[in-house]
Design a protein around this nucleic acid. Sequence first.
DNA 1: CTACCATCCTGGTTGC
DNA 2: TGCAACCAGGATGGTA
Length: 276
Amino acid sequence: MPELPEVETVCRGLRPRLEGRVLARVTTRRPDLRFPLPADFAARLTGRRVTRIDRRAKYILAHLDDGMVWLTHLGMSGRMVVAAGPSNVVDKHDHVTIDTDAGDHVVYNDTRRFGFMDLFPAESMAAHPRLAGLGPEPLGPELTGPRLERLLHGRTSSLKAALLDQRIVAGLGNIYVCEALFRAGLSPERPAGSVSGRRAARLAESIRAVLAAAIAAGGSSIRDYVQTSGELGYFQHDWTVYGREGEACPRCAGTVAIRRVVQSGRSTFHCAKCQR
DNA sequence: CTACCATCCTGGTTGC
DNA sequence: TGCAACCAGGATGGTA
C-alpha cells in the first residue's frame, strides 16, 4: 500500500485522533520488525502527548511533548488503523497498539514486517540516517523543472530507476512512477540524464498532478484497505497504466497495448508509443 | 560514484 | 483439491 499518497492519507487520519492526545497505554507484541523496535519503546511512549504529526517522504513523524520524535515507516504492508472503543480483537500481525486518553486506539499492523519504528530527539532529526539523504518533497515548492533536471543530470540509469531512488525525489514508489511517466509521455527506459528542459518541467508537473489526484482519492488500495478509518482508497480505479498489461492505451486508444517490462526486478507498465 | 542483485517476510493468485 | 512457483506498495547492503 504505502507510497507518498497513502502515507499522507494515513497522516491525515491520525491527526484528529492523536494530535493533542496522550498515549495512555502502549503495547508491543512483536519487536522484530524490519529493524527491532528501540529499547524500552513502549515505556518511552507511554504518557507522552503528541504535539504534531508530519510526513516526510514515506515517513510518519509524530512529535512528542518531551522533544522526541516517533517515526514510522509502513514498509510494504504496514497499516495504521484507528478505532474507538476497546481494542480487544488482536490480529496475528498487530504489532503495536496504542490507547489514547480519549479512548481511541491506534493499531499498527504489518503482515510482512518490512516496516519499522524509531524514537529519537527532534533536534537530531536532520542527521537521522533514514532522513538525511532524502531528495526534495515532490509536492513542495522545491521540485521545479530545473531542479529535477539537475537531480537527473549525468545519470545513466533508467529514468524509472532514478525516480524510485529516494535520494533523487522522496516519496515515489512503483505505482506512481509508472503513472507519472505515462502522464509525462516519457519512456521509463530512457536514460535519466536525458531528461531536461521542457521534458523535465513536464515530468515535475506530472509527478505533482498524479500524487495530488491520488491523495484526493484517499490513496490506492490493493487487496484490502488503506485509510486509518478502514475505508478504502479508490485511486486504483484511476490507474492509467499500472496493472493494465495488455489493455488498450487510454491515450492512443489501443493502437498499442500497455506493456509490462521488468526493470531492476520490478514491474514497469507503459505504452511504448506514447512514452518516448 | 553507479548499477544490479539478492534479501528481509507473509500471503494471495496462478498454473499444472 | 493439492501444491509449487510466482508475484506484491520498499529499501538496503554487498558486489562488480
